[in-house]
Amino acid sequence: MSSGRALTGTAWAVLLLGLWFWGKDGAEGPSGASAPATGDIAAVGRPLGLPLPPAHDPLAPAEPRRVEIPSIGVSAPVVARGLDRDGAIDPPPYELPGTVGWYGSGTRPGASGAALLVGHVDTQTRPAVFYGLSTARPGTTVAVTRSDGSVAEFTVDDVRVVPREGFDAGRAYGPHLPGRSELRLITCGGTFDKEAGAYTANVIVSAYLTGTRARG
């Protein structure tokens, strides 16, 4: 339990490449519980005058192994996730709250296109890997260690809380600029709807490739 608040299971609502991605809520949560980011629609955007680095050319495809976001305390293994029996992307199990899931049939982080990384915001008892994701800001560095020994370094350029109802999935999860290597990090946000067993929104952090280095 965190700060005396009973945490609830996470529920997903992500549309990617025409596939609905739903994480099932396994138990009832307390009425009114909320994720760190609230509100129907919120966009942090880029503060005026904040210089962001130029984009780096996309890298050869390689699978992600670890993601690190030092400014919000994230250092987590990455596992590929496939589809469940309903044809939806299967999130990491609740037994692994510190693990990030990557849609393994999609773009590899660092390659051209938008790669998808997902993580739970909380469990029934404690915060999970992406609990602090909504506090990321433009300019934040996201490092993804890859299977070829390289580290792809991304820079956050947008942070949004998008309501589950009526959102444009292509706009939310598709590439912002053609030919660029991009990253989407997604978790739940808004308030927890006990009747629906789901959070009312998704936190979507967008980043783009700005550098690469060898794994230390």
Rank of each mutant, 00 (worst) to 15 (best):
W102Y: 06
A13S: 12
V118W: 00
L50R: 15
M1P: 06
G104I: 02
K194L: 04
G9M: 00
A43M: 10
V79Q: 12
A136K: 05
G106W: 05
E182Q: 13
S206M: 01
P163D: 12
A43P: 00
V44F: 10
V78G: 11
A201I: 05
D122G: 09
T145E: 14
S150I: 00
P163R: 08
I72P: 02
L52A: 08
V44H: 13
A33E: 11
A76P: 04
P47D: 15
P61S: 14
G166W: 03
A207W: 01
A198C: 01
G32Q: 09
A33G: 12
R46M: 03
D90W: 03
D57N: 08
V142W: 03
S206N: 06
A11M: 00
D86F: 15
A80M: 05
T155Y: 04
W12T: 02
V142G: 09
V78A: 10
V156E: 06
L59T: 07
P91I: 10
P54M: 06
P77E: 11
S71I: 01
S75E: 08
V144G: 08
T8Q: 11
A88P: 00
G18M: 06
G104V: 02
A115I: 08
E182Y: 11
S206P: 00
G26T: 06
V156C: 05
S31Q: 14
P138W: 15
G18D: 09
L83M: 10
E153C: 07
R46W: 01
F21S: 13
D158R: 15
L133A: 10
P54V: 11
V203G: 05
G179N: 11
S3E: 14
P70L: 04
L83I: 14
R215F: 02
L185R: 02
R108N: 09
A115D: 12
W12C: 03
I41T: 15
N202H: 03
V129K: 09
T99C: 06
G132K: 10
A111K: 04
L116P: 01
G49N: 11
V161D: 10
R213M: 08
P36S: 13
A115W: 07
L50Q: 15
A143F: 00
T135F: 01
A114H: 05
A76L: 06
G166K: 08
L177H: 09
A33V: 11
W20E: 13
A198I: 02
D40G: 12
Y199I: 05
R66I: 02
A76H: 05
T155A: 11
E63A: 15
Q124I: 02
D168Y: 07
I204S: 01
D168N: 15
V161L: 15
V78K: 07
T200C: 01
R184I: 00
G18Y: 09
R137N: 06
G32L: 03
V100H: 08
V121I: 10
P61R: 12
T210W: 00
W12A: 06
W102Q: 09
V142A: 08
L177C: 01
T187M: 03
D122N: 14
L117P: 05
V203D: 04
V44G: 13
D157L: 03
I89P: 04
A35V: 09
